[in-house]
């Protein structure tokens, strides 16, 4: 009986060996190679004060001009952002309507174009917001799909070669967002960023500017940690992967508003980012009309009201004034 058992056990062992005792481990995918961050393109020209000049304001509706075309169409089509908090973002509490500082300008322009028409002005009917990416701004203006772009659009000489701009409607500056604790410990500028990790969108000039500012101050530059966009930087900031974010103060204001532990302390700006409203190069009458609206907003205090409502609190309560038009005006 024992022999039989031993034989059966032997058969079992043999069978197990023949059947194979197990499989090879399932392989893990190979880690993809890390992409090297894209460098910001070198500018083709140097922006000087004269590049900030636009056409002289005029509220005259030129026959056969762009403003008349928009009136006839019954809709002003404006390219905007929908995820730049405080500048232009969808508000889920308000039916996902896009709200913010930039939107106030689009509304004012729409009102000025349509308020004298027979039907009067109605935002939903007369202004169509088209959400666009930053990369689409110039292309969509050039091919005429949109009339205007109000989307934190910095005026510079190379862009003037492709499109037209209104006069500066906001003097944005590049600043640094830091944690509340760093601000309270006395953050005083780029010299306090030495050895810290700073985030900005991949390929943006903001990262270069912060390094240049550190070199100018003669201090060690911060460690650069790029992300896909500014909101991606906020995620890195919230996860403790970076210590600071640099960018336009308007954008940083929106980020600070989403995180109670993030602040934009009062500081010396790293760079100037003058914002303008973009239009097609041929639509000079529309640009003049927009400039007239901006002057109207200065006169009636609606610019100040918009700033106070959307940005002031998030920019440490810093007061701001509407920039005066750069003169002499452009001719054309």
């Amino acid at each position: 009986m024992n022999r039989v058992r031993a034989a059966l056990a032997g058969v079992g062992v043999l069978a197990a060996l023949l059947a194979g005792c197990g499989y090879d481990d399932t392989p893990l995918p190979e880690a993809p190679e890390a992409e090297s961050p894209a460098q910001a393109a070198d500018p083709e020209c140097t922006t000087v004060d004269a590049d900030l000049a636009s056409y002289e304001p005029s509220d005259v509706v030129v026959p056969g001009g762009k403003v008349e075309e928009i009136r006839d169409r019954g809709r002003l089509i404006v390219g905007v952002s929908a995820d730049t908090y405080k500048m232009a973002s969808a508000n889920p509490e308000n039916g996902n309507r896009i709200e913010g500082f930039d939107i106030e300008f689009a509304k004012a322009i729409g009102r000025a174009i349509f308020e004298d028409t027979s039907g009067g002005f109605e935002l939903g009917r007369n202004v169509q917001f088209r959400v666009i990416t930053a990369a689409q701004r110039i292309e969509l203006l050039q091919n005429g799909e949109i009339d205007l772009v109000v989307r934190n659009f910095t005026i510079n000489c190379s862009r003037w070669q492709d499109i037209a701009f209104s006069q500066v409607y906001y003097d944005a500056t590049q600043k640094v967002l830091v944690s509340k604790s760093l601000a309270e410990s006395g953050y005083d500028g780029v010299q306090d960023l030495a050895g810290l990790r700073v985030c900005a969108p991949t390929g943006s000039t903001s990262l270069d500017n912060v390094v240049t500012a550190a070199e100018r101050e003669g201090v060690d530059p911060p460690i650069l940690e790029p992300a896909a966009n500014h909101t991606g930087c906020l995620i890195k900031f919230q996860r403790g992967e970076v210590d600071a974010i640099t960018g336009d103060d308007t954008v940083l204001a929106g980020l600070a508003a989403q995180d109670p532990y993030a602040v934009v302390p009062d500081q010396e700006p790293l760079n100037d980012e003058p914002y303008g409203i973009g239009a097609n190069q041929d639509d000079v009458d529309l640009v003049r009309f927009v400039n007239a609206v901006l002057e109207e907003m200065r006169a009636d205090g609606s610019w100040q009201a918009a700033y106070n409502r959307w940005l002031k609190q998030e920019l440490s309560g810093v007061d701001a004034i509407q920039p005066p038009p750069t003169q002499p005006y452009r001719t054309g």
């Binding site: 929908a82 973002s89 889920p92 919230q238 989403q258």
Partner: peptide
Amino acid sequence: IRQTFPVGAE
């Protein structure tokens, strides 16, 4: 997103 912050979408 519940706090209406766009960073939620990111």
